[in-house]
Design a protein around this nucleic acid. Sequence first.
DNA 1: GAGTTTGAAACT
DNA 2: CAGTTTCAAACTC
Length: 791
Amino acid sequence: MDVVSPELNSLLPDEIMDTEAIAMEEELPAEHLAAPPQSEPEPPQVPMETEVPEIVSLCPASTSMQMTSTSTDAQCSTSLGTQLLLAPSGLISSTTSTTTTSVKTTSPAVTQNLPKISSVTVPANHQLIINKVSSAPAVDGKCPGAAVLKPEGQKLLVAGLSKTGQPIMLALPHTWNKPATTQGTGDAKAQPTQIKMVTTVGKPMIAVSSASQLMGSSTTLQAQQLKALQISKKPPVSTAGPMITKLIITKALNNKGLSSPASVAPVVTGRVVTQSSPVTPPRTITIGETISTVSQNTSGNSKVAISPLKSPSKLTVVSVASQSPNSPQKSVTLPLNVALGQQILTVQQSATTSPAKAGTSQSTAQTVKPVQTVGGVGTSQFKTIIPLTTPPNVQQIQVPGSRFHYVRLVTATTGSSTAQSSGSTNTNTSIQPAKPVMMNAAVRMSVPIVSAQTVKQVVPKPLTSGAQVVTTSQTPQRLIMPATHLPQIQPNLTNLPPGTVLAPAHGSGNMGYAVLPAPYVTQIPQPTFVTLTSSSTFSTATPIQTQARLSLNGLSTSEATSRPRKPCNCTRSQCLKLYCDCFANGEFCNNCNCVNCFNNLDHESERLKAIKACLDRNPVAFKPKIGKGKEGESDRRHSKGCNCKKSGCLKNYCECYEAKIMCSSICKCMGCKNFEESPERKTLMHLADAAEVRVQQQTAAKTKLSSQISDLLTRTTPAITSGGGKLPYTFVTKEVAEATCDCLLEQAEQAELANQPQAVAERLILEEFGRCLRRIISFAGKAKTDCPINC
DNA sequence: GAGTTTGAAACT
DNA sequence: CAGTTTCAAACTC
């Protein structure tokens, strides 16, 4: 779908990214990483998804990076369909998921810094694009679903079609571009801007208002599951001064309202606070109701696209240095929940390689390097390669059990920054040394994906090399790895561990890579709350974060995640060899019984070396062993085949049998009995099934009987006299006795089915009787406590 | 829980 | 690539 006309596309700056390179490919040649195309062809037409949520993208086309707070620097698109893109630099356009139509925004020459939104296009897939340009090309003519209105007295009224075909109108307030100069010079009286979007039927709405209004608009979200995005960013210290931009977007997950006229439209509320100088008050923009888009000009050196997501959704975070027009940059949209539920969050930042332009805000310290993401949709592979020049400071707050997940990426500013002063508002430049976590000196992006109510505790875990992991302890820790101290690793990019992230080594200048198997990140069934923090200069540290849900060992995601991995017991391998299941699965050891474990963040350098060694020995060492077989064969088969000799491939020694798959032609096993017609295998399977059925029956029976006992005890409670204080045995009514007998008989039957000796059967029955008795006593006591009046 | 068996990984 | 060793999980008692 063409959002803009080809003519307009021709005007697009090179920096505007498209989604072509984001197309999920299972394998991507390494050269793609080194030499990204300078100019991207027309974005491929992506088949629209019927339920693709609306995407709102405020994409300032201005390449001028003047530090005016009103100059929209952040591109933010969000929707209930969970597309949220933030592009601080205004140099990029958003990318969309593979299931959504790619969008390019127009980029007419901008002669002023005022954030004029020239066009808003709303394609049929409900993507709304707002371009901050000084003039509005004839977009409406090319996009039937969009209309551009400029009522008198207002800077812009734009309208599109909602998902249901209802017109969407976005009305910028009259003061839309007024604060441009005032805030840039520290005008404390800068007033918040309001944007309201209404439809003819009152459904999709955008409201940009003050923070206080945000609160009001967010009240409608109370009944809905909210997502919050919080971004705070500090511009390059050398160029922009202490400008801090803070973006908080709260969005509703429920997008059903878009299609249901009668229902309340999902609401997205947000707030942008920008401080361009100590005397400049925060500027707040609240975006609410259905779609929120916030564009905010901060330092212009980072681009963030965040998608708080609903499957299929993606999260794109791309640092965008102010870069020369010839420096192509791409914002890579990564599927956060692709076919296998993979989730990846990538932050790309790199030191500038383009000569800074003095006097312009583009002369920041970083230039975006291409981010290549190779996602194996439908496979278990997901690879992200993030060129970085400096090691990241990573802080992850992980609450695995509660489906709440924080990822905090921090890149501190350093004195070695090459950033140059350019911003007109740069009045106070401070160079700070790199620190592991400097939330107030960096860009922070928080993507709330699940309700914060689920967060129970956050326990910081000290990390080395500037990385910190904070996690609660309920599920195995799978975290990112800071790419520090990494020797120059140039692994086979096609055979990295699932979800591998390649990051430049520290001090390497640019293209050293850290190998970061994706499973280091906790896999959670739902999108997570991600906090990204990075400085504007990126001279010493760069955040890297990858989240991926991967299939493990051929198992589906649900299987892999639902079954807790067993703790390892390694004693001699330091958990740095493939003997260790944790290491082999690309996970950190957590709650394991290993001795002298190096598979943790405290030994990241050793661990990275070990990963490299494994990859040197076997480039596919971290690939799942169970993959798809050849045509005509079973869907799942062992990639290498087993070599069993004595087990007959009918014990868990055999990797095929363990994976519950048949041995295949590539197996080199001897005396294999793990084939379809094998009577031994059938017998084993039958026995296993029978055992499973027995367990299930037993569990069900106990549950049922226990419920019966409870019910009976509850019903007998009123019989207790208030002053009697009857002893528990008085609760053993006829019904209770019968239920207890049922329990005992059931236990006897189970023992008989299991061919247990009589002695064992008797013991089991007695144990069951004891359990019944305890339940009776327990309920008796509870009944006495719960019913003080009757008792 | 200790000891044995097994086969993948690592090594030569 | 083949043979051997190392290793940790699976298994048995």
